[in-house]
Amino acid sequence: MNTRDILQDGLARLERGETLEQVLASCASRAERDELADLLALATNLRDAAPALSEASQARVQYQVSGALRALAPARGMSLGQTWGLRVALALVVVIVFGGGTFVAAAESAPGKPLFPAHAAFNEKRARITTDPGFVIAIHLDLAQDRVDDVRILKQRGGLNEAPIFLMVGATENLMVALENNPRSADRATLERAMRLAQAERALLRELAQTAPVERARRNAETLYQLSESWTPVLNRLLAQ
């Protein structure tokens, strides 16, 4: 056998569960053993050195994938299997409860919490892979509503800074863009819900401009309140169509 095949034979034996010692013991010569020892050690070290998928990462990935599948399944005329979705939810709870987290469910995640990025990514991914414009608008509307709820929760807790406020306005801006790009894809009920959201969010911004605990948050809320002036006229125009 040449060196290449000796290496592959050694790797195959390690994969079958033999120890490095056993593999090296059967080498024909000292030179062959030394050569193989280095290369097998490298291969083993590479395996050990690669990052592993932690429980929290696993939960975040699963959450994104299951969210996307949930969006894809009806579009492809499929029924969404309940078992996996339920198991994902349970996995999240396990991670949250046993992984040191303190809140109840990823679906209820809020800014500053471990799975908040997953929650946002979940909805963003759903919007990205969905092609039906009406469904895209519905997802953006849900996402925008979530962000408003997040800000309200943080406001009640007294831990509000400017970041969730930007996220909230950004989500509603995404909704407005989706609505303007697809002016005939939203039904009246959706537009009315969007209007209620926009009005409530603007009222919240005005309040935060006065009462947010951090000065930067107050200043940004004031600026964002002014920038959000365009929302109501756009929605009125769409409702009039």
Partner: peptide, 28 residues
């Protein structure tokens, strides 16, 4: 279209796919 079956395939391969991507991209 059985999503549960796909979920089982995900379970079988997610770790390996992640390790491959994390190793190559070097940002977990």
């Amino acid at each position: 279209g059985n999503v549960s079956a796909f979920g089982k395939l995900y379970d079988q391969y997610a770790e390996r796919v992640y390790r491959y991507l994390a190793f190559r991209w070097r940002d977990s």
